[in-house]
Design a protein around this nucleic acid. Structure first.
Length: 643
RNA sequence: GCCAGUAUAGCUCAGUUGGCCAGAGCAGCUGAUUUGUAAUCAGCGGGUCGGGGGUUCGAAUCCCUCUACUGGCUCCA
């Protein structure tokens, strides 16, 4: 009997019943068959070797398809498990899925410890097993048999996983000596896995529950070609070179001190200059868009946060209250700015004619983060949000969203981030009770967000159930120069705080109404944003932003005075830079300036002084020739305009 | 907070199984050199080997503990 197979290009072919995707690939070309990893059959991803018994639409998945990679890495996880079982007899297995880049397996090693010293032998064992070209064999098993198998093996984790599975949907996969409970799909055989690297080892709670046993999680990555592994490792090296903690220290942007405290960044002069420039840039844009800037204290009475509800929810996991010595009053370090801003809104009666009120503040907040969470500038205990709260009517939500979206897009583009998407988080339709605010208001807000984003033409992703209990939100996701994805700014609608603070305005009907509150922060926090910006640019900041725009390099000490004269002329034009006054060779001065990633170098020798010229060199691009100072200013202006 | 690891000069790193005053390169300082597009030469100073405790005749090295950092997990208003 023959069945009809439809391929993605629309072509149809007849095959014997029981044909596999691999057979189909082979009928097209041997080369294709070698590259096929998995296959989508009627939209479901299958083993390429699994027989097809009915008419189907089949898409062959190779390394170029995300589904192909996932199958490949999933199979690699099984291969790692097989190697581990061989090296550590009696080891127990949790789960071992593919991830965005590679795979991991959670294992219980009993008394033994696996550390990075063991990676090499695990890799070697995996390669040895891979070379056996063992097939991944799928089999359907009854629940009873599955339980029996893992009881015999003594693997309580697999038994626990089986509890959640229905009889009839349970499949095993076996390759070589290793059998695993697995839904699949897998690649045809281990021989396709040519290059393997174990990357890291970490603790991971069983089923993500911190009250349960912590297993050992081994991360690895694998490729069909050695060359691809080498490229991947090179990319990791590049990321390491751009690490904001390393560059931040090298460029003198910020520091940490054990004595000041973990997670409390200290901004050095150059970092402060950069950060202030960034803030001023946003500040000016906000004023253009109708924001008013405010300043509120770094602490607030505990009652403020009791009112806002934050104390009940986060009080225990916050820095504990500060007490006044005599009165026994309790103050909290402010973990967010919104309660203060609510007080500002409530300060004077508001009319509908006052709305929207947009209050912006570069507000420094302090949050307790668990010690193991801290990470450079991206996860800290004290940071400054580019915060603002918009108080508006329900009808104004969409226009306000558009305003914020426009601002955020403008700001990110200026910063050199050209790939970003919006992630919209909406209510969980199955769980309407956990949300605050009326159905009708949610409806309006959600629709406003969706429509506003649609109008900007941004790429969007909508996730149901990810909204906060107090309102829907939108997060900006950006891709950096190394194609890594980060979450940046956020816009959140809030129905909770206006209610808790009993905020109101008088409408045109002369009745009191509750305003809607929108939280928004285009950068998120200055610290986190700058950490991403450092890694995105590799420390080569845009000209307008960088702490030193040029370095004047005198050929000899007699030219320093002349350089100071040039520096003063440029400073008058808001062009900032430094003079390398060291008695060093010009080669050395150039090299050091290049390494400091200062964008422009002005080399001044006797020749230039006599002719009133400067020799211009661009960081990373070499000699740009000589020009007059006016010529340089113009050149500089052109570079600025290009940004 | 949990698991695993790391901590030697300002930076990057050496320091064999515990054993002479703990080393190098770069940076710094001093002197000479006054330089033409990515490192001029020479000399010098600099470390309570993260803090504390212990084992030992003897500890950078072994053990305990604290702190910080790294990679994850959990968390993230």
């Amino acid at each position: 009997m023959t069945i009809k197979i439809t391929l993605p290009d629309g072509s149809e072919k007849n095959f014997e019943q029981g044909v596999s995707a691999m057979d189909i690939a082979r009928s097209i070309s041997e080369g294709l068959a070698r590259n096929v990893l998995t296959a989508s059959v009627n939209g479901e991803v299958w083993d390429a070797t699994r027989p097809i018994y009915a008419d189907a639409t089949v898409q062959l998945m190779t390394w170029n398809d995300p589904e192909g990679k996932l199958g490949f890495w999933h199979s690699s996880a099984h291969l790692m498990a097989e190697a581990l079982e061989a090296l550590y007899p009696g080891i127990k297995f949790g789960i071992g899925p593919p991830i965005e880049a590679g795979f991991y397996y959670d294992v219980d090693t009993g008394d033994r410890v696996i550390s990075s010293d063991d990676f090499k032998r695990i890799e070697d064992k995996m390669i040895e097993l891979a070379r056996q070209k063992n097939q991944y064999i799928r089999s359907e098993v009854s629940k009873a048999d599955a339980i029996k198998y893992f009881e015999q093996k003594g693997d309580q984790y697999k038994l626990e996983l089986l509890e959640g599975l229905e009889d009839g949907e349970i499949t095993f996969y076996q390759q070589g000596q290793f059998v695993d409970l697995c839904r699949g799909p897998h690649i045809s055989d281990t021989g396709k896995i040519k290059a393997i690297k174990i990357l890291k080892v970490a603790g991971a709670y069983w089923r993500g529950d911190e009250n349960r046993k912590q297993l050992t999680r081994l991360y690895g990555i694998s490729f069909p070609k050695q060359k691809e592994l080498t490229e991947y490792l090179t990319m990791l090296e590049e990321a390491k070179k751009r690490d904001h903690r390393k560059l931040g220290s090298e460029l003198g942007l910020f520091m940490f001190s054990e004595r000041v405290g973990a997670g409390l960044p200290i901004w050095l002069p150059k970092g402060t200059a950069l950060r202030n420039r960034l803030m001023n840039f946003l500040r000016e844009e906000q004023i253009k868009r109708g924001y008013q800037e405010v300043i509120t204290p770094h602490i607030g009475k505990k009652e403020l946060y009791v009112t806002s509800g934050h104390y009940a929810k986060y009080g225990e996991d916050s820095f504990q209250p500060i007490h006044t010595p005599k009165e026994g009053e309790e103050f909290l370090l402010k973990p967010m700015n919104c309660p203060h801003h609510c007080e500002i809104f409530a300060h004077r009666p508001k009319s509908y004619k006052d709305l929207p009120v947009r209050l912006a503040e570069f507000g420094t907040v302090y949050r307790y983060e668990q010690s193991g969470e801290l990470h450079g500038l991206s996860r800290v205990r004290g940071f400054t949000q580019d915060d603002a709260h918009i108080f508006c009517t329900q009808e104004q939500v969409k226009a306000e969203f558009l305003n914020v979206l426009d601002l955020t897009k403008y700001v990110l583009k200026k910063m050199g981030f050209n790939h970003f998407t919006a992630q919209i988080s909406l209510r969980d339709p199955d769980n309407p009770d956990k949300y605050l605010g009326t159905d009708e208001n949610w409806e309006i807000a959600e629709r406003a967000i969706i429509e506003a984003v649609a109008e900007t033409g941004m790429e969007t992703r909508t996730v149901l159930g990810e909204a906060a209990f107090y309102g829907p939100k939108l997060d900006f996701m950006i891709r950096d120069a190394l194609n890594r994805q980060w979450q940046l700014g956020t816009i959140q609608v809030d129905y909770n705080l206006p209610r808790r603070f009993a905020l109101e305005y008088t409408g045109s009907d002369n009745a009191a109404h509750q305003p809607v509150m929108i939280h928004r922060a285009p950068f998120g926090s200055m610290e986190r944003f700058i950490s991403i910006l450092i890694e995105h640019t590799g420390g080569k900041f845009p000209l307008w932003l960088t702490p030193d725009q040029y370095a004047l390099l005198p050929m000899n000490d007699d030219l320093i005075a002349h350089c100071e004269d040039i520096q003063a002329q440029l400073a008058a034009l808001d062009i900032r830079g430094l003079i390398d006054k060291r008695t060093e060779s010009i080669g050395r001065k150039i090299r050091d300036t290049e390494l400091k990633k200062i964008p422009l170098m002005l080399i001044v020798g006797e020749k230039e002084r006599r002719s009133g010229l400067v020799s211009v060199r661009k960081q990373g691009a070499g000699d740009q020739g000589t020009m007059s100072l006016e010529g340089f200013v113009q050149y500089f202006g052109e570079l600025l305009n290009q940004e």
